[in-house]
């Protein structure tokens, strides 16, 4: 059982490794954006999937990450890789400050507050406070990531590997997180908040932690996005972008990491595959979303729970049986 699973993972990883050698730059770029959406989906999945908090303003965190990178890089010339953790921290700090006072809100009220927060970020970027964000045009001339010694990441293929290495690392970390005490507390809150708090789970702080981690990951995505495009503008961080992330998580299956990757594939690849349909392609896209929710309301790859996790608690003896 575990062996076949490991084999499948190796096949998929191998396919991702060799993919860029067989296609043109255009398709490598599409796969890069697939990676960005996968990272954004994973980041929203922490908030929406694991804890069940409705967040329709996630593009705000993404924007904070991208603009932190853009401004610090163009004004002070700080290298992109140094800004990667800085962007994550900036987005996380922003999430902490904004979400602390509203974390007690329930369901749809939290949804509208996060939505408003995302809109405030976008409108603030357009209005160019302190002459930092460049208004509707955004910030231009962001560097490519560089490691020094003349090794720059500047071609499509290098960006492709960069984003997918980060996605792979995030998946690894998130799977560990799912099985940890934090992950279980999150799921408890999602299933029954009152029971969780009655059993001593610190509901408020665990919710905040989910927002902070989700925002940090979105900030990382923003950092890479900014250096790939070399410019950022408020257009890229609209309410629509938040909606797409929401759809990625729900199409894939709440709290399911493989599901999120499939959801991201759907959102980013579908419009490309249906490009021949020209102006009808978004029509088809909308219809596909409706049909998917009709036939697979729990998502394409819903999260499995149960036996495996339980057995791993019993110790190595019990685990050996299913090898």
């Amino acid at each position: 059982m575990v062996k076949t699973q490991r084999f499948q993972i190796m096949i998929i990883a191998g396919a991702f490794l060799v993919y860029p050698f067989f296609v043109s730059d255009y398709f490598i770029d599409i796969a890069f954006y697939f990676g960005i959406y996968a990272l954004l989906g994973l980041s929203l999945n922490i908030v929406l999937g694991e804890v069940g908090l409705f967040d329709l303003g996630h593009a705000g965190f993404y924007a904070i990450g991208a603009y932190t990178t853009a401004i610090l890089n163009t004004k002070f010339g700080i290298p992109i890789f140094v800004l990667l953790p800085v962007s994550a921290l900036a987005a996380a700090l922003f999430a902490y400050l904004v979400c602390s006072p509203v974390i007690h809100l329930q369901g749809d009220y939290l949804l509208i507050v996060t939505l408003g927060m995302g809109e405030i970020v976008r409108l603030a970027l357009i209005n160019n406070p302190f002459d930092l964000t460049g208004g509707p045009n955004g910030v231009f001339g962001i560097d490519f990531p560089t490691f020094g010694y003349g090794f720059d990441i500047d071609s499509s293929i290098e960006f492709y590997y960069l984003i997918w290495i980060i996605v792979a690392l995030s998946i690894f970390g998130l799977i560990r997180l799912q099985k940890s005490r934090i992950g279980r507390a999150w799921n408890y809150i999602r299933e029954d908040e009152i029971a969780a708090s009655a059993n001593g789970v610190d509901v408020k702080n665990y919710k905040l932690l989910a927002f902070i981690l989700g925002a940090a990951l979105a900030g990382v995505a923003g950092n890479i996005y900014a250096s790939k495009l070399m410019c950022v503008s408020p257009e890229s961080f609209t309410f629509w972008e938040s909606c797409l992330m929401f759809c990625i998580v729900l199409i894939g299956g709440m709290g399911s990491i493989p599901g999120v990757i499939i959801g991201a594939a759907f959102i980013s690849l579908f419009p490309e595959i249906f490009r021949p349909f020209a102006m009808y392609r978004m029509l088809v896209f909308g219809l596909a979303m409706i049909l998917m929710m009709m036939y697979r309301p729990g998502g394409v790859w819903p999260r499995k729970r149960g036996a495996v996790e339980f057995r791993s608690l019993l110790g190595p003896a019990a685990r050996r049986e299913d090898v």
């Binding site: 909308g286 979303m289 409706i290």
Partner: peptide, 15 residues
């Protein structure tokens, strides 16, 4: 799921 379906309907109508 109804939220996603509603977003899908919105995309269809708009396009």
């Amino acid at each position: 799921p109804a939220v996603v379906s509603a977003l899908g309907a919105s995309i269809v109508l708009q396009n």
